[in-house]
Amino acid sequence: MKYLSFILIGFITLTSFKTLSVKTDKNITTPTAYFAKNINIPFLLKDFVGFKEALAFKESQGKYRVVNKLGYLGKYQFGKETLKRFRIYNTTYFLKTPELQEKAFIAYCKVNKWILRKDIKRSVGKTINGTKITESGILAAAHLSGAGNVKKYLRSNGTLKFNDAFGTSIKSYMKKFAGYDTSNVSANKNPRI
């Protein structure tokens, strides 16, 4: 139960969740089972908040202060070079400032949407390598591999593939993060934080 609670805490947002009531057997004898009798389990909507929280959970289990073995930082696992694009040079401060990480994620989505705007228009709705292409899938894949690699993947109709250092593919991110509503993210060549 404590692991379930830990996972759920990583997904809760104040702006985007519904609850699902769970009913259990009336003959409950353990304290944990008693607690679970009338628990409300939050789940994410398929909106932008749901998208960013699901991506964050995949990247870092939603933890702001995580640095992975390759040096990627924070809740969304940013590289230092990507952060420099947004004039973020102090990585210690970045790790300690959740608000800055959230703003950096939104700015990165905006610039990726601007870079990939033509590819989004051409590719959304198509199926490549058995995966239906959606805007949110494209934005997630760009977060994983960079917009340039996503362009190559889409323009080659999936023949040029990319895997990150952990073996995660563009295709897997496009599939896992498909169908979220990211329409409120405005394409912006030079977003500011």
Score class of each variant (00 low, 15 high):
3 Y>L: 15
5 S>G: 10
9 I>N: 11
9 I>K: 13
10 G>V: 08
16 S>C: 00
16 S>A: 03
17 F>W: 09
20 L>I: 14
20 L>K: 14
20 L>Q: 14
25 D>E: 05
26 K>V: 12
28 I>E: 01
31 P>L: 12
32 T>N: 11
37 K>L: 07
38 N>V: 03
40 N>G: 13
41 I>W: 07
41 I>E: 02
41 I>A: 03
44 L>E: 08
45 L>M: 01
49 V>H: 06
50 G>R: 00
54 A>D: 11
56 A>K: 01
60 S>H: 00
60 S>G: 06
61 Q>Y: 10
62 G>Y: 12
62 G>Q: 04
64 Y>H: 01
64 Y>W: 08
67 V>D: 14
70 L>V: 15
76 Y>L: 11
79 G>Q: 10
85 R>T: 15
87 R>M: 03
89 Y>M: 06
95 L>A: 08
99 E>S: 15
100 L>R: 01
102 E>P: 02
103 K>D: 12
110 K>T: 05
114 W>N: 05
114 W>S: 06
119 D>Y: 07
121 K>S: 12
130 G>H: 10
132 K>R: 15
132 K>D: 11
134 T>Y: 15
136 S>L: 01
137 G>F: 02
138 I>V: 05
139 L>E: 05
142 A>R: 03
143 H>Y: 14
143 H>A: 06
145 S>M: 07
145 S>T: 08
147 A>S: 13
147 A>K: 02
148 G>W: 00
151 K>L: 13
151 K>D: 12
152 K>P: 03
155 R>G: 07
157 N>T: 02
158 G>L: 00
165 A>I: 06
165 A>P: 13
172 S>C: 11
172 S>T: 13
174 M>P: 11
175 K>V: 01
176 K>C: 00
183 S>T: 10
184 N>P: 05
186 S>H: 12
187 A>G: 08
188 N>P: 01
193 I>Q: 09
